[in-house]
Design a protein around this nucleic acid. Structure first.
Lengths: 245, 245
DNA sequence: CGACAAGTTGAAAAGCATCAAAGTAGGTGG
DNA sequence: CCACCTACTTTGATGCTTTTCAACTTGTCG
């Protein structure tokens, strides 16, 4: 059977069985989408959010002139499309970077979390604040760092998130992104990403190895990225009681 | 007496009296900070968030090399510092742009909202998702638009938020920002902001009028900014019942 | 009136974009 | 198994946007 859904919430609290149950109940039908496939389009009416259970995906905003900004690279366990809950029509397009499995979570189920499991709701809230920090850091990198440091910061960020789920060895990470996609994440052209990757390689900070990246020294890469480190809270004392389920 | 605190939540729902009461109870002591003063520093331990009741403020991330990225311009009613709830130490510095009044909201009070007023918690959740959309749009502008469109997008954004609270006429908005601060918002240098403002002025899109900006045609400015329009939800049907307070 | 913060302007340089073309790899069909 | 197609990567040459540096102007407040 389906087992406990993978998600980001246990980064903040240890879920009790009742909370797990609420999460399982929240999930609707599962869907497979092939590489490059559309999970949901910008402008679609917002009736659900998604849980990414397998594969990588991306959220992006498309502009009128054909340019686009990739807003986030999603890994398994991520909740997709939730910023658009505040809108009538989705702000972001969700695309599969690799073949993915997503499960739909109707908005009504999200609403039920707030009454049925307040502590779970608080964890969800915190998880969204974490996403906001990720966005703040990306904005800072795009606004204030040169191309090489920007790219280093992205690599470090993805490394750290992969390491959290144990989906990577210390020195090698999966890298299913094309250089054009990386450019759309960092606000640069694919050509310049290519040259910048070469630069990082000459500095012995990363090495391209087919669909993976080797990271000879994470410390040096982190130093090079010039971004502040983040330490996430764990079971904050202001959280509601888990018993209240 | 203090009256109802000004906030962003009523953009999404009409609060019932009990919910207002919970919000009022949540507020701790009030503090005045002068122009340029620090409300909270990056790196400080996170024990509270703030409600901005008067004046303008900003959130920014400082980098090691002295550069900084301004992450948001805060207007009265905004909640300050909440992204750092997910962290042990604050990610952002909060500065007063004008003389401000802020009230402290201890984290324990935020936690109480989740058990005492689920619908209020859901509104808070939506409000944070809205902040995420703002960040997504800013990232898109900084990553993908040239300087002039970026600046136009910022002006339109602030206009719209000011218009919501009726704090502006149709064609003139307060503009307490220095060109250096605008540069730190948009990822540009103050010198270039100066030139870009001149460019918008020559295009008859904005006019500088001391501490204010005149906007001869919001339609043309919006068109020029090339950003998608956003329509926020109102009383979504998936929200918990207000009776559950 | 004098000092300091902010705005303005010019000239030169840097970083990144654009355009164009050639090279590589994986997948498909004959 | 080979040939081809397509998507992706790589490289060079050139141009544009933005930065940098520096000086000067304006405004504000003691």
């Amino acid at each position: 059977m389906a087992g406990y859904p993978q998600h980001r919430l246990s980064e903040f609290i240890e879920l009790v069985p009742e909370e797990h149950e609420v999460l399982i109940q929240a999930q609707g039908k599962e869907r497979q989408v092939g590489r490059g496939g559309v999970i949901r389009s910008q402008g679609d009416p917002v009736r659900e959010v998604f849980l990414l259970s397998q594969g990588w995906a991306l959220s992006c905003v498309d502009l009128r002139d054909g340019k686009r900004q990739i807003v986030k690279i999603h890994l398994p366990g991520d909740m997709l499309g939730s910023p658009s809950m505040a809108l009538t029509h989705a702000a972001e397009t969700l695309l599969a970077l690799t073949p993915v499995t997503v499960t739909s979570v109707p908005l009504s189920a999200v609403g039920r979390i707030f009454t049925a499991a307040p502590r779970l709701a608080a964890a969800l809230f915190l998880s969204i604040q974490q996403e906001r920090i990720f966005l703040i850091d990306r904005l800072t990198a795009v606004g204030r760092l040169p191309a090489a440091a920007r790219l280093a910061a992205l690599i470090v960020h993805l490394h750290d998130r992969l390491a959290l789920s144990g989906a990577t060895s210390a020195t090698t990470i999966d890298w299913p992104l094309t250089q054009e996609q990386v450019g759309d994440v960092l606000g640069l052209t694919p050509v310049h990403i290519n040259r910048t990757l070469g630069e990082l390689e000459r500095l012995d900070l990363v090495h391209r190895a087919g669909p993976q990246l080797e990271l000879p020294s994470l410390d040096r890469l982190r130093e090079f990225a010039k971004m502040p480190e983040r330490q996430w809270v764990r079971s904050p004392d202001w959280f509601p009681d888990p018993a209240s389920v």
